[in-house]
């Protein structure tokens, strides 16, 4: 069992526990093959936010600079949660979609391969 070697018990609350976020939870999302956005994004969101609102209201502000964002066919978009295939129910909340604090999503948009096909 891995443990920190210390002179006395060494245990603390996690710095990022849910209750520190004033009613929000963290959700991360990265857009595969679109590395113009250097890293996935991190959002503090109400757990009750419907998935649809996340996609329609939150994502444009984050990914909208990319010329391919407008071309996304959302009906064909593929999702991964923690690396596993994930089928969101757009009208259910994040919580009801099983997305807990610090869940990580990957968005895949087949056919869109970034600026000049460079995964940018």
């Amino acid at each position: 069992m891995a443990a920190v070697a210390a002179v006395k018990p060494y245990e603390f609350e996690a710095a990022d526990r849910l209750e520190n976020f004033h009613g929000n939870q963290l959700l991360y999302i990265g857009w595969d093959q679109h590395l113009m956005f250097c890293a996935p994004f991190c959002f503090p969101l109400p757990p009750a936010m419907p998935f649809r609102a996340f996609v329609e209201q939150v994502l444009p502000g984050a990914f909208g600079y990319h010329p391919e964002f407008k071309q996304i066919d959302w009906s064909k978009a593929e999702w991964l949660a923690s690396g596993q295939p994930f089928k969101p129910d757009w009208d259910k909340s994040l919580t009801d979609n099983g997305l807990a604090h610090k869940a990580v999503l990957r968005l895949r948009t087949p056919g869109l391969t970034g600026i000049k096909g460079s995964a940018t």
Partner: peptide, 21 residues
């Protein structure tokens, strides 16, 4: 991290800290 989670769970991550206010 896996070797010393009790240490790295304390990380003061700037992005999360902004969101925590």
């Amino acid at each position: 991290f896996d070797h010393e989670p009790e240490k790295y769970k304390q990380s003061w991550l700037p992005v999360h800290q902004i969101y925590q206010g």
